[in-house]
Simulated assay, not measured.
Amino acid sequence: MTFTPTLSLTEFLSQPNIESSPAWELINGRTIQKPMPTLFHSRLQRNLVNYINFHTEELEAIQELRCIVSPYSPVPDIAVIIASRLPEADGAFNGAPDWLIEILSPDQSTLTVQNKILHCLNNGTQLAWLIDLTRQQIWVWQGDNLPHIYAETDVLPSLGNLPPLTVNGVIAMTNRS
């Protein structure tokens, strides 16, 4: 993870490299490059997006969508947004996703990810998941409540009318399918 001096949102968005892979985020005035995803991270991200999009038309799950949640510019691993909120024009999403999903990388700061989640929750996000593959747990924030830690056969809260998902079911999405 690389840190640079403090920038304003306008200064950050005018930088030419923020969409390079992996993407750059602006959190607390600092630019942070997301870690390069691992095989399991990438599979989980793809399979979870496909699962959500297959089971609902009310929501759309999108990988690595830049959001503008002033003064931050997060790029969640998965942004799930009520379909009617999505703009017709291409570009970043102006606002917080309705459901934010992050997959913790081994070299990623848990505190930085939680800070991003809390900022989005304070700006309209209804539900947030922080998936910890190493511990096989999922931290869940809903509304103003403190996070709950789910494991194994615990059924996870979701938005929309998705079929129930357990932590074991989410972790199994790291496998090829």
Rank of each mutant, 00 (worst) to 15 (best):
L48A: 07
N168E: 15
V170P: 09
V69R: 03
L156Y: 12
I18P: 04
E102R: 03
L48Q: 12
M173G: 11
L26T: 08
W24E: 13
S14E: 15
R85I: 01
I101W: 04
Q108L: 00
T125E: 06
E57M: 08
N94Y: 13
G124W: 11
V113T: 09
T10E: 15
D98P: 13
D107Y: 05
L48S: 07
G169C: 02
E25A: 07
N17T: 08
T112F: 00
S158F: 04
R135L: 12
N50M: 11
D77K: 08
N17P: 00
Q108Y: 01
A92D: 05
N47M: 01
L156E: 11
M1R: 04
I18G: 05
N175W: 06
Q15V: 02
C120W: 09
L165M: 14
W141Y: 14
G29D: 11
G124L: 12
P35K: 04
F54N: 14
S177I: 09
S42M: 06
N115K: 13
I101N: 11
Y72R: 05
N168P: 03
P5H: 09
P35G: 04
T38Y: 00
L104P: 01
S14I: 04
E88L: 10
L133E: 01
P71V: 04
E57F: 09
D98H: 12
P97G: 05
T166Q: 06
I103Y: 02
D144F: 01
P97R: 06
I138T: 05
I117Y: 07
I52K: 11
L9H: 00
E88I: 03
T110R: 15
A151P: 00
